[in-house]
Every structure is written in C-alpha cells, then in structure tokens.
Amino acid sequence: MKLQKNELLLIAAFVGIAMFVIFIALGVGEHWINPLNPSSDMEVLILWEIRLPRILTAFAVGGMLALAGAWFQVLLGNPLAEPYVLGVAGSAAVGAVSAMMLFPDSTLAMSMGAFIGAWVGIAAVLSFSFLGATRLLLAGVVLAAFWGAILMLLMALLPERSLMLAYAWMMGDLSSSSLPVWSLLLVWLLALMCGVFLSLSLDKLLLGERHAEALGVHVQRLRLILLFLASAVTAIAVTAAGTIGFVGLVVPHLMRLLFGSLHKAVLISSAFGGGILLIMADTTARTIISPAELPVGVLTAMIGVPIFLYLLLRRA
C-alpha cells in the first residue's frame, strides 16, 4: 500500500477538517460548552460521555456507509447502488424487529438480528447477480420494497411497547449505539485500509470485468472480497445506528466529482467525507428543534433524495 504525496496531503486535509467539525460538534448542544475549557464537572461529563461517543459513532458509521456505497457501486458497475437502495438496510431492519419480537428486552439480540438480516439481504440481492449489473440494481429495488412490506407486517404484530424502539431504529439513532465506539472506529480504519489496498484493482474493475481480468485482476476473487467487505461494513454500521439512508450514495458521488474517479482518492475522501457529513447531519438533528431531537435518518434522506434524483436526471 503505497501512498503518494497527493494522497497523504488529502488525508492530512481531511483529518484537519474532521478535527474542526468534531470540535464544533462537541461545542454545540443544549448549550455551548467550550471543549478546551469546560466550566464544571458536569460539563466535562457531558462532553466526554454524551457528545463525544455520539459524534465518533456518527463519524465511523458515516464513513463506513460511504465506503460500502463506493464498493457496491464499483461491484455492480452502477453509480446509483448503495446499501439502502439495494434493500440491505431494509433486511437488517427486518432482522432487528424480528429479534425484538422473539427476545423483547435484549439489545444484544436486536444487534444480532440486524447483523444477520443485513447478510440475508445481501445474499438475496446477490442471488440475482447473474442477471447483470443493471437488473441486479432493479432486483435490489424490488427487494427493498419487499423488506418494507415484511417490516410493516412485523410492526403490525409487534407489541406496542416495542414499537417506539423499532421506529427510532428505522429512522437512524446515534444516541445509543449498541456497539462500543472504539470498535466502530477500528472497523472504519480497517475498512479504509482494505479499500486503499485494493484500490488499483478497483480502478481496473471500472473498465468492466473482462478488461480488469485482461489487466491481471482476479475478478472472481476480488468480487468475493468486495462483497464480504461491503456487506460486513454495512451490517456493522446498521447494527450500530439503525438504517441511515443515502450517505452511501451521495458521498462517493460527491467525492468523485471533487477528486476524480480513481479509488485511492475516492475511498479516502469518502471514508472521511461520509463521517463528516453524518456528524453534521446528526448535530443538526439534535440541535435544530432543541430540546427535542429529530431522527438523523430524516435529515440524510432530505439531503439525499434530491441529490439522488438530480443524478438520475443527469444520467438520462
């Protein structure tokens, strides 16, 4: 994994921006707390135990979703692919809600359910992969609708007391991640490193599978690795924060517009950019109608849907 001067510069710039955004996000909330100079013990506690874990969770989850989006896009050869559109988020929600029904008061069961659900969703989409990339995307969209219907069914059966949790989880909720923050950051870092390591092969895959193979890429093996990475990262992100849509779609695309389509730049910038975007979305969600909060998924969808439609129009 060789990083050129340009890429190191890119990383340095993004680390700088991320630090700045985290600093601001740490400061704002119910009231402004200067992160460098908190005035009481309670402020210290609020900074490090309420705001920081939430901000770092947002960063890791946003980065992971953006990386997974970029991977699904190259995997399917279609820039409109992303976990949410492919129904993977929906199947994870089905898994989580099913677990809620079977083991009502267990957060662990819910996380496991989400994780298994994400994998089932990916397997379902991929069992159509022989159809080719375009139809695979179509299959994903149809499956997403299917998971949505199953979800409605489960919610109708769910005891009322679990509904709140199910709703919160489906709209994305960063306030109480069931996975520890350090593990999310570790996964983020590993995912980014794997991505950068594979970036040259991924670039070749942009030329189509045959060209990639002729240029010496083991396409089958690469596809398997990518699938594993993208689905594992999606499953972990969804488990941690519920279903947060459109980060995986919007961020890689913006980064391609800004930094070109070669993957070293796309993946590095998406991993940071996705994290930064989700921190900003979540900070807005928790402050805009303070003291009440909005679900973060509402904000990302509100930003994401217009951009998605714009991309569709531009391609037509």
Binding site: E30, S290, P291
Partner: peptide, 10 residues
C-alpha cells in the same frame, strides 16, 4: 418529543 440527555440535565 425525543429528548437528549443533555437537555434533561439543562
């Protein structure tokens, strides 16, 4: 309304 712990403290 959904509420943040911080808001309760405040």
């Amino acid at each position: 309304p959904r509420i943040n712990v911080e808001s309760v403290i405040a």
